[in-house]
């Protein structure tokens, strides 16, 4: 099918540039796709297959790689179908026109591809679960590290530095009996309470750290098993980094503020916050750096 007149420029945008800029809803019907006068996309020739592929390029949703793959497959299909038509006795242009007609409208193909690109719930749940497992593991390990730091602070500054009980606090006799039983060397209920609370503050954090290590091991196990089945996926890095920098950054700032405030007013126990704040802030800083790097490296194409 030869159309007279118009020459097309060869300086059309790259696949990547068009696929990023063109929204999925710009798909057009066959008639529009085959119209030489259609305004938005220039084609190097007016062959029905070329025009159709240009339209599909402009309308196809997905990443540049997905779009290139779809275009390659569509072109191979249309060339095959055209060759079959020519072999059956059709003229080249008519064979191309029929191949395009059988392929379906650009809109129908682009819409089907867009539906395919939308993430199924199971895949989304898998991504959230895997990313949550990793972040939970890191959080747990961070709490464990804060337990070690807090234990060191307690050893250096005494139990009162990490436990917020004041000498005048009311302590229930039943609790005192339990604390004193656990710490026979204590000279008073207050001393026994300090010892018990300090070991709880440190101990619970260390348990969280162990749980974090177990979660990290589970994460690597899942990654190994699912990678071999091509099922391992996480949330996009900028999403994970944004969540992490928010959680760790806010937690770190809050604990640092609390620790400094308690220290300033002479409140016992500031060390329990000051032992945790640096760990959270360090992680917040690390994820903040990663987030900036992600955004710098993929300012447009990330989606």
């Amino acid at each position: 099918m030869s159309r007279p007149g118009k020459r097309w420029s060869d300086d059309r945008p790259s696949v990547e540039a068009q696929s990023v800029e063109a929204p999925p809803d710009v798909a057009r019907t066959d008639d529009e796709a085959l119209s030489v006068d259609a305004p938005s996309v220039e084609a190097p020739t007016d062959s029905p297959v070329e025009v159709y592929l240009d339209r599909l390029l402009a309308a196809a949703p997905g990443s540049p790689r997905d779009v290139r793959a779809l275009l390659s497959e569509a072109e191979a299909h249309l060339r095959d179908a055209t060759a079959e038509g020519v072999k059956g006795g059709l003229a080249q242009a008519e064979a191309e026109r029929r191949a395009v007609a059988r392929f379906g409208t650009v809109r129908s193909v682009a819409t089907a591809e867009a539906h395919r690109s939308s993430l199924p719930f199971a895949a989304l749940a898998r991504r959230v679960g895997v990313s949550g497992l990793l972040l939970g593991a890191i959080g747990g390990i961070a709490i464990g590290v804060s337990g070690i730091i807090t234990a060191i602070l307690g050893a250096l500054g005494g139990s009162t530095f990490i436990v917020d009980i004041s000498p005048g606090s009311h302590l229930a006799p039943s609790d005192c009996a339990r604390w004193l039983a656990n710490d026979p060397g204590a000279h008073s209920c207050y001393q026994a309470a300090l010892s018990d609370w300090a070991s709880e503050i440190v101990g619970f954090r260390l348990v969280a750290g162990v749980a974090g290590l177990v979660a990290l091991a589970a994460f690597y196990l899942v990654r190994r098993r699912w990678t071999s089945r091509q099922r391992f996926e996480t949330l996009p890095a900028p999403v994970v980094d944004t969540i992490a920098v928010t959680l760790f950054g806010l937690a770190g700032a809050w604990m640092l503020g609390l620790g400094v405030d308690w220290l300033a007013v002479g409140h016992n126990g500031a060390g329990q916050w000051l032992g945790a704040a640096p760990v959270a802030l360090a992680l917040g800083g690390y994820y903040g750096f990663r987030l900036l790097r992600d955004l710098q490296q993929a300012p447009v194409a990330s989606s």
Binding site: D66, A69, L70, E73, A74, H77, A81, R102, F103, G104, T105, S108, V109, A112, E113, H115, R116, P120, A123, R229, Q230, R231
Partner: peptide, 18 residues
Amino acid sequence: DLPEGTVYPALHRLQDVG
């Protein structure tokens, strides 16, 4: 009698789910 081009997204989807 489906539009032939719509089969490709279906193939891609089946690949996506393994």
